[in-house]
Write a protein that binds this DNA or RNA. Sequence first.
RNA 1: GGCGGCUUGGCCAAGCGGUAAGGCGACGGCCUGCAAAGCCGUUAUUCUCCGGUUCAAAUCCGGAAGCCGCCUCCA
Length: 502
Amino acid sequence: MSLKIYNTLTGKKELFVPLKPEKVGMYVCGPTVYDTSHIGHARSVVIFDVIFRWLKESGYDVCYVRNFTDVDDKIIKRANETGKDPIEISEKYIKEFHNEMDALNVLRPTIEPKATEHIGDIINFIQMLIEKGKAYYVEGSDVFFSIESFEGYGKLSGRNPDDMIAGARIAVDENKRNPMDFTLWKPAKPREPSWESPWGAGRPGWHIECSAMSNRYLGQSFDIHGGGKDLIFPHHENEIAQSEALFGKQFVKYWIHNGFVDINNEKMSKSLGNFTMIKDVLVKYHPEVIRLFLLSKHYRSPIDYNENSMDEIISGLDKIYAFLERAAKVGVSLSDNNPSDSDLKDKKANTNNLSGESWAAFKEDMDDDFNSARGIATIFDTVKRGNRILDSIGESAGKNSKDSISSENMQELSIICSDLQKMGSILGIIAQSPESYFKAKKEAGLADSSIDPKMVDQLVLERTEARKSKNFARADEIRAQLDAMNIILEDGASGTTWKFGQ
RNA sequence: GGCGGCUUGGCCAAGCGGUAAGGCGACGGCCUGCAAAGCCGUUAUUCUCCGGUUCAAAUCCGGAAGCCGCCUCCA
């Protein structure tokens, strides 16, 4: 067990040693719930989901906290535009977020705190900062954090406050002692949600909620803090300032940041109008295809979402399931591979003695800074090994029945399949049985092709008869006819099956 | 202006000093009545370019070119 994690704070890959043995505290910045989530949110959530799963698999007791920012300018703006209550807005999008993440087979974090439910914690936190001389209240204005009061300001993002001020594009607020000081508490304007505080009715600034909530659930110091790369500055920098200024000790040991999703090699942006929403992607692709895609590149690098890549991913996932289906046909039993949150650990205890070389390789891949791209390569290597065994025993030609497969081969195939399922359970894929995967695929194909399956079956039957009577001309004619409908035939040992092409 | 990142075969993508994983595609073969699937083989003497360090560099250092992100809300 020697997990290494790239730490943004040090810019190096470091051996992961939790603050307390066997326990890990992890905080990830969740969405501001004012709009529908896009594919970029999905990437971040899926990546940290895999990290969560891997930490648990590695034997840690993980407390995973992911917040919802449910009070914010954008939510208020949205509320005013739609004439709704801000709470209505945030609840709507929280619900949507949960639905989509459930569809993507994302495990729920241990705790999902909301900013509005921690206003007391936030006010206390600010109060203490003021008492320590780290923050100041400007009468009639905001409470600001004083960056000059915190020596380490800029250490996460590698920025020097003076340089930033020099090239600043921000309007200087006359109330601030230093232009880089940031808001902890701001006074409420009319018709805005607000809470009473020592500084009048108002609401928290953006950064303070994460310091207050992480402190509440994970303490003054914890192991991992994550989020998108864009959060490094100013959000996470400011969190460090708030928490370390107050508690005088290291806030977070390992900082993890994920890269962005581009769309056809362009950044998602309002001006380009290319925001790709999760719900739209879910309509087009199987959830496991989306996960496999999001994990197909190292989490820190940018990844490009485009149709061509998605088609390649579909081929890959089909290949994995097709192998499992072949294996099942010769009698390898596949376990139910959709473990709930709680039984990942039990599963480990049950199947550990069965794990093979693939699992060992995968473990190395994941231990190396959660290298899911390499883990996926290991999955394909495993599939190839399995197919090779199946070819060698001539299963496809129907020469061997289940009984005549040697016990060594059976044993090896069992291990390969169980390894595949274990690897899948970390990446959150291969959660279905091959039958239901291909059945769903066929149904999806039928749904948008207006093809009558009965008619296809009838043609397949006719072709089988034609083949029996060596009328190959007719057989090929039928094949061509179905091919024109994007239907591909496969003549197997146990009859002919059909599927949709890509 | 400040900070950071990227450039690997037709495409996607690992690689983090020891002599180029994996996927998609293409081509040849096995299998098949023909296919499909699967398997086998071929597809980068070379990693944007130029220098340097080293017995050894895609990997380290210096320089050049191109691309990108952050510094304002952003996963």
